[in-house]
Design a protein around this nucleic acid. Sequence first.
DNA 1: CCAAAAGTGTTAGTGATACACCCATGT
DNA 2: ACATGGGTGTATCACTAACACTTTTGG
Lengths: 214, 214
Amino acid sequence: MISLKNDRFYLAADCVVFTILHKELKILLIRRKNEPFRGRYALPGGFVELHENLKEAALRELAEETGVKNIFLEQLHTYSDVKRDPRARIISVAYLALISADDLKLHATTDAELAQWFSVYHLPELGFDHHTIVEDALQRLRVKLETTNIAFQLMPDKFTLSELQNAYEIILDRKLDKRNFRKKQKELNLLKELQESKMEGAHRPAKLFYFKGN
Amino acid sequence: MISLKNDRFYLAADCVVFTILHKELKILLIRRKNEPFRGRYALPGGFVELHENLKEAALRELAEETGVKNIFLEQLHTYSDVKRDPRARIISVAYLALISADDLKLHATTDAELAQWFSVYHLPELGFDHHTIVEDALQRLRVKLETTNIAFQLMPDKFTLSELQNAYEIILDRKLDKRNFRKKQKELNLLKELQESKMEGAHRPAKLFYFKGN
DNA sequence: CCAAAAGTGTTAGTGATACACCCATGT
DNA sequence: ACATGGGTGTATCACTAACACTTTTGG
């Protein structure tokens, strides 16, 4: 896309990709190579092409910029302020994306030099209206965490109950009660206990579970 | 808009306007004067213009097609299937709109001949993907009804508790317990009782309330 | 006095919260 | 034996659900 015209709309799909890494809730940002906001960070994303729908565009952009596939995507909101992009009339459809830190490592690519993970609590300055988008996404993530099974999108295939609880605590930014958390998980009946245990550190090994739905 | 080109995107804002009328949950549909789907019904809406954002476009279209102003609007979802409009690549951003049947009468306009209210349970065939949009909107309305104060957007300024309960029952499509409903409203403390009563029919007059927030 | 909708409390059940100790392991 | 995180049950509180009769009016 060399030059943008002022007699039409352009459509972009931008992704707020969350993961949990090093006990922090992180989002993926890309350092911009071009104007506007050259050198600043922004959400991964780009222009939708005429032959694809929005979700396809979001998946394609993510694959190109980060190498990630099979990612969980949910449409968040569409941003349309007339002046949100100085170049032209660009409408951005934002997606909430979740990925397990495990899956991440498998897909590192060449383009990855420009991509970087930031704690949501220590973001750099972002281009466009991307701060607003990130806030909306975080809010949505929290609501969904407490009302759906979305959390498992952030977990590896096998995980311990403490790891799961940690994920909740990190996202909600508050402590949860261990016994109540485990009781609830048992009642929800979404997890299947494995025979394996996770051995690490000088303490009792933790049982591993996987998400079986119901 | 005479002819549409195939080298670009067009943006539309479409509204699912709910109201409660004659004890039914209704949505507003417009009979199409032009191809495609000429003669069929479709959601009110139209093309976004370059100088306005999506919400402004939705409000403008509603005003033009129905004369309604000051309506409650919330962005619902963006629909982008490549083939959703046979003419060109048209992306539709759908809005959930709520209006009190009272406010409605005040704003009837000339264009209104083409606009008509239909029970959500007895819709005619709709053009485009508008059936999907309506279903999504209804689902969202129900969730919001139970988690926010959105219901008051559908009520007149003054209303009785029975009228409010009726609105809930009509939207959720199930009976609610009268005593529990009233107790909950009292606890929520969002209503202010007026001195007036509503006298109609051969029975005890009902106290009127208005929504004061908190 | 009859019909019709308004109005009003109590009880049981279910889910959320608060809280403290023993267990299995590595060093 | 000690340090570390894993694992477990019970009591209280808050919210939801079920349920029936009296009141006020117009006709």
